[in-house]
Amino acid sequence: MSLSPEQVRQVAHLARLELKNEQVEHYARQLSNILGMVDRLSAAQTDGVPEMAHPLDMTQRLRPDVVTETDRRDVFQEHAPAVQDGLFLVPKVIE
C-alpha cells in the first residue's frame, strides 16, 4: 500500500494537521513504508477470530451517580491560551 501526496494531504486534513508543502512528499514516502510493513498482516489467517480491543476481558465499571468533582474552572482555565468571563475564546465561528 502506498500513499500519494494527495492522500497525505487528505489524511492530514482529517487529522487537522497543517503540513508544509515540502513535508508532504517526505511523509508520503515514510507513511507508505510504514503501511508496507503493516501489510504483512493481510497474510494472517483470521477467519472466525474475534477482535481483541483490550487486553483484559473486563466490563465497564459503574459508580454511584453522585457528584464527585468540585468546580475547578478557574484553575483549569489558568492554562488556557485565551479565556474571557469563564469561557474559552476561539476565532469567530458565526458570521
Binding site: 500513499l3 492522500q7 497525505v8 489524511v11 492530514a12 482529517l14 487529522a15 494537521l17 511523509y27 507513511l31 510504514i34 503501511l35 503493516v38 498482516l41 493481510s42 494472517a44 483470521t46 477470530v49 474475534p50 477482535e51 481483541m52 480491543a53
Partner: peptide, 25 residues
Amino acid sequence: MIGTYVLSHGYYDAYYLKAQKVRRL
C-alpha cells in the same frame, strides 16, 4: 496520520479490525 488513515472509511476493516484479530492470535 497513520492512525487517522487506518480508522478512516474504507480502510477500517482491512487495517484496524484485522489488527485486532491478529492481536487475539
